[in-house]
């Protein structure tokens, strides 16, 4: 991995952020025929509409509106919430920190389950264990988050009464209680990702097991454990990094729904609240922060891939 490759990769992030900002601004501010009517509703008085248009600078040319908005956004100033009157940038960043806790825990749990599961299924290819994991992962990719979340709540919160169904307790307040409240949302999000990733690990492992270098290792008489750990796992897990990176985008989408259902005040729930209330600055801030998080995550995955796979020489 050379410095120029890294530089180009970082420039690409900057470009991505720019494109995303044009889209977010365009979809939220330009697409509605009149943002002032959108915000105040059809029954607003002409005076109120005129005042709001002036405040939002809607009379200015579009590029000026966009430049002003982007300039603010780059410094974290996305304007004031139409709903609460508070600055939306800081509000969304606090919400993001809660979402990242949820996402991080879900990602960790997923990796701990999905990799062994996929490996196990691959080694038992075609047998009962493989078929059962295949069936379960099929179910996992065919159930939307809100269904899994509802079923999980029905089972663990209503029937068994093991865990609280909704709510959020900050980690700094009471660690055990906080984790108890996070348990079901984390379970929901990771279940779906386990389904994706274990399927991927399985097929990658099977590919590697059929490769020439594994056959060579077997013919050399290397012990099975060494073949599995040093030769198979290493090569099978590399492509999985890319899948996990793609899943982060999926994870961010899933988090929107899961936070809404479990009443976690993360960025997804704030976004839904903003969309329902037509709070334009909050929608813009939430969407930008989420998209930038995703762009950064996939860039990090690319860099990790390049660092780990010595066959790849980017220049």
């Amino acid at each position: 991995m050379s410095a120029s490759w890294l530089l180009r990769r970082l420039l690409l992030v900057v470009y991505t952020v720019l494109v995303v900002s044009v889209l977010v601004f365009g979809i939220t501010q330009v697409l509605p025929a009149d943002a002032a009517v959108t915000l105040l509703g059809e029954n607003a008085t002409p005076e109120a509409l005129a005042a709001l248009r002036l405040r939002l600078g809607l009379g200015d040319p579009l590029w000026l509106q966009y430049a002003r908005w982007l300039g603010g956004a780059l410094t974290g100033d996305f304007g004031l919430s139409m709903r609460t009157g508070q600055p939306v940038g800081p509000m969304m960043l606090v919400a993001l920190s809660r979402s990242l806790l949820l996402a991080g825990l879900a990602l960790a749990l997923m990796l701990m389950v999905a990799i062994p599961l996929g490996l196990w299924a691959a080694l038992r290819q075609g047998r009962a264990a493989d078929l059962v994991t295949g069936l379960v992962s099929y179910l996992g990719v065919s159930l939307p988050e809100f269904v899994i979340a509802t079923l999980v709540v029905m089972l663990f919160a209503d029937r068994l009464q093991w865990l609280p169904a909704t709510g959020y307790v900050p980690l700094t307040e009471d660690v055990a209680d906080s984790l108890a409240h996070l348990a079901l949302p984390v379970l929901t999000v990771s279940l779906i990702m386990v389904a994706h990733v274990s399927r991927m690990v399985r097929s990658e492992t099977i590919d590697v097991l059929h490769s020439d270098y594994i056959r060579a290792a077997r013919l050399k008489g290397l012990p099975g454990r060494s073949i599995l750990l040093r030769h198979t796992l290493r090569n099978a897990l590399l492509p999985v990094i890319t899948i996990v990176a793609l899943d982060v985008g999926y994870l961010l989408g899933g988090i929107i729904v899961v936070e809404e259902i479990f009443a976690i005040p993360g960025i997804g729930r704030q976004l839904i609240v903003a969309v329902t209330a037509r709070d334009l600055p909050a929608i813009q801030a939430g969407a930008m922060i989420m998209a930038v998080t995703y762009a950064l995550a996939s860039t990090l995955a690319d860099i990790a891939y390049a660092l780990l796979d010595r066959r790849i020489r980017y220049d």
Binding site: T28, A287, M290
Partner: peptide
């Protein structure tokens, strides 16, 4: 393709939410 990749930085559900919020 660079632009398509950049657009894909917006997760599907988020994109749908944005569009529904203005449509």
């Amino acid at each position: 393709m660079r632009n398509v990749d950049a657009v894909m930085a917006i997760p599907g559900l988020l994109m749908a939410l944005l569009l529904v919020s203005s449509l």
